[in-house]
Design a protein around this nucleic acid. Structure first.
Lengths: 159, 159
DNA sequence: CGGTAAAATGATAATGATTTTCAATTTCAA
DNA sequence: TTGAAATTGAAAATCATTATCATTTTACCG
């Protein structure tokens, strides 16, 4: 018998992320609850920079009994697993971005529409390291956000 | 009669800052209250990256009747005047830094002791502009914080 | 000066985001 | 299956900040 499996690549990736999370829970002796699975599932289904509240609302649609606090708690776990990064921006609530399969990057943020673009400039990275060392610091991490107006918003305002 | 004035340079600078603030108030038809003068005076006397609460406490020592809200309100005015910049960091309350006489700069922050070092790298600045433009953005501003361990803390942990 | 409109103040309540608490429920190893 | 320990949802607490509002101050005007 020949069986042809037609997993979509996307699903493959999500399964890897699910496995990483299950693994994280196991190795830290945390329990595998329905809620944690459900929240991860919804998190994975939305590849945007969400706030906790936005994720909560999305989770509610499929799993109405889940509470706000559990979403927050699970986001912390996802961050600890390395699937997610918490971004504290200039204003507004924290946003959570997908990390799996994303290399380290910084952000270009449109002050008009709030759009996020992930950017990376190896030369800047190198100079940041150098700058830290110049001051005798042992570099750990950094954050860089570039604010500006994206092409669409520029057109909108001119038109 | 010969009079020898021996103004300290420091005092000179502070007077300039005071004048700038008075000027800002006048041109915006804001009133020149005791509280505003007092808060500026204390702000100028502490050249560190303070939180609103730290400033409030310092103000209280000399002017016990000043309220928390007025400190917040005055900090906004100081920012508007350009004497002060509000920094929203990864964690904790906002910090306020002195801007007068400080060129644009970013921060190197010690994760051990919380020390701030003001840094600037023209090459990084240039690359940031370029990076924004590469993505079609009209650059506005940016924030960059480099986290690491300062020389003192490195020694402490090794000793 | 004294009167007065507008602005500023301090105290306090309200807000928004996040965290903690706690009784009830669920998980999971034995 | 059972029971200890972890997790949950709801609600209260917290923390930083902002808004409200009655009272006081400021600044201008005669």
């Amino acid at each position: 018998m020949i069986m042809i499996f037609n997993f979509k690549k996307e699903t493959d990736v999500k399964n890897k992320e699910k496995n990483l999370f299950q693994n994280y829970l196991s190795t830290h002796k945390f329990k595998h609850s329905k809620q944690r699975k459900g929240i991860l599932e919804i998190f994975l289904s939305i590849d945007r920079h969400l706030t906790a509240e936005e994720l909560y609302r999305a989770v509610k649609q499929k799993y109405p009994s889940v509470g706000f606090a559990t979403v927050y708690r699970t986001l912390k776990l996802l961050c600890a697993t390395g699937l997610c990064r918490e971004l504290k921006l200039e204003s507004g609530p924290a946003r959570y971005e997908h990390l799996y399969g994303h290399k380290h990057h910084d952000h270009l943020i449109c002050t008009g529409c709030g759009r996020f673009v992930e950017v990376i400039d190896p030369e800047i990275e190198r100079l940041q390291q150098k700058l830290s060392k110049t001051h005798g610091f042992l570099p750990q991490e950094h954050r860089m956000e570039l604010y500006g107006i994206c092409p669409e918003c520029r057109n909108k305002n001119n038109g």
